[in-house]
């Protein structure tokens, strides 16, 4: 049975249509790579999956339950990595991670943090304040966060930004480990991450032209207003 699915998803950001009628599904142990041009909606899709925003249409389900029904449970099972690292410059790497560990209710916080720091080879930076970190080190600290506690789903938005080759390899290894334990990883990247057999989800085909979508979802009244413009559009299309 597929664990994590989305059906007929339509996403609007502000007044802009990002994508429409998108569906996806992922099983335990799957890695889904989001592909698409700038603005195709990779980040938006990840934010929908995390529950940060709600889709205009469609539902996202975890084992058949709409994630909007039990948001707390959904949040407890996922780790989300956004564009920003959320590192406080005046707190040490350890203190930065501590908050997230505490909020997840982890019992053995120090051991978990040690482990996460070692995994990304930043154990020596544990007592360094955030402001002295390089951008790559900050990114690695942010990545260390997703290792804290139990989780079933990683949503990684451009995790490789600012990472060197070694860290990328390390990340790929950790993702493989997570998948072996039955976790689902959904990520977008512009760099090739060495990940075995990812499911590739290309967002470009779902970028339905806004015009068509407007007409489909608008009513006759609006269509009357639009019809003139549309006729014009059709003639130009015919000209091509």
């Amino acid at each position: 049975m597929t664990v994590f699915t989305g059906s007929d998803l339509t996403c609007l950001r502000g007044e802009r249509l990002v994508f429409g009628d998108l569906s996806f599904s992922a099983n335990t142990g799957d890695a889904v790579m989001l592909r698409g041009r700038n603005g195709a909606g990779k980040s938006s899709l990840l934010r929908l999956m995390a529950g940060l925003m709600a889709p205009r249409h469609g539902t996202i389900r975890w084992q058949g339950d709409d994630i909007a029904n039990d948001k707390i449970a959904h949040r407890a099972r996922l780790h989300y990595l956004g564009h920003q690292d959320a590192i406080k410059p005046v707190l040490t790497v350890r203190d930065n991670l501590r908050l997230w560990a505490e909020l997840r209710g982890i019992s053995d916080i120090d051991a978990e943090i040690d482990q996460a720091l070692r995994a990304f080879d930043i154990h020596h930076l544990g007592k360094t304040a955030g402001r002295y970190l390089s951008s790559g080190q900050k990114r690695r600290t942010a990545l260390a966060r997703i290792l804290l506690g139990q989780s079933d789903l990683w949503l990684l938005d451009e995790p490789t930004v600012g990472l060197d080759r070694e860290s990328c390899a390390e990340l790929a290894r950790l993702i493989a480990e997570f998948r072996a334990k039955g976790g689902i990883v959904i990520y977008s990247t512009h760099v090739d991450l060495d990940i075995a057999a990812p499911i590739i989800l290309d967002l470009d085909p779902f970028a339905i032209p806004m015009m068509e979508w407007l007409i489909e979802h608008d009513d006759e009244d609006a269509n009357q207003h639009l019809s003139l413009d549309m006729d014009q559009g059709r003639t130009t299309e015919a000209a091509i």
Partner: peptide, 8 residues
Amino acid sequence: GHNAGASK
């Protein structure tokens, strides 16, 4: 069109 000026 709709994909210009991408945000988050």
